[in-house]
Design a protein around this nucleic acid. Sequence first.
DNA 1: GATTTGCGTAAGTGTTTACTTACCTATATA
DNA 2: TATATAGGTAAGTAAACACTTACGCAAATC
Lengths: 109, 109
Amino acid sequence: MRRDVFQAIADPTRREIINLLAAKSLNLNAIADNFKMSRPAISQHVKILIECGLIKIKKNGRERFCEVKFQKLKEVSKWVEQYSSFWNNKLDALEIYLSDIKTKVEPKK
Amino acid sequence: MRRDVFQAIADPTRREIINLLAAKSLNLNAIADNFKMSRPAISQHVKILIECGLIKIKKNGRERFCEVKFQKLKEVSKWVEQYSSFWNNKLDALEIYLSDIKTKVEPKK
DNA sequence: GATTTGCGTAAGTGTTTACTTACCTATATA
DNA sequence: TATATAGGTAAGTAAACACTTACGCAAATC
């Protein structure tokens, strides 16, 4: 069972959980309130996020508050940003511009 | 069947394919040469990358050259970078420092 | 024209995923 | 002490995933 950050953020529900927790640390029920799916389903998503290190738990009585460990996202950032020069360089812009022209000139393709 | 960029890059083989293609546009067999798995397996991975817009094909005779459309990675970059302030601010650094100290002080946990 | 090469795709398979309901335990509250 | 609340976890299930082998077809080469 692979359990890495890339896998973890592949699921839209888990990305949304991270979004919620970015604003504010929440306990499990508070997270679940934001979704239509069952509480155990959310519990399982949170478990995956914990296992890959994206979330840490702070226990307070019977409540368990989740907070995001954003440093873990660096892994993804590093991988993606190594290509950033490709998508914002001049050549790339030229390419888009040309294929755009082409579309206008021969639209039947 | 979800077919978005996050899903596409969740698989390590597909990330590796993108890595290879970043250096040089390759045809399918050339890509497959870099992996132990079968050619059809690679063909299927490439298909997924095409379907989510990360790869475009340039046909040349019977060969099909793959090239990465890096702009598609912007989607990932945008999502991740919205949190970059969290992982490189002072408070965060302090937190890491403190938990580091804690580990050294009570190592039996 | 026959054969090789490049590559897509179908069918089959074992594994993983994303849920569900049911149940359990620990903490808090009346 | 009884009960409500927070939340973990097991079992079941349908769908998706990551492969494989087998096959087919079109372009290139002999």
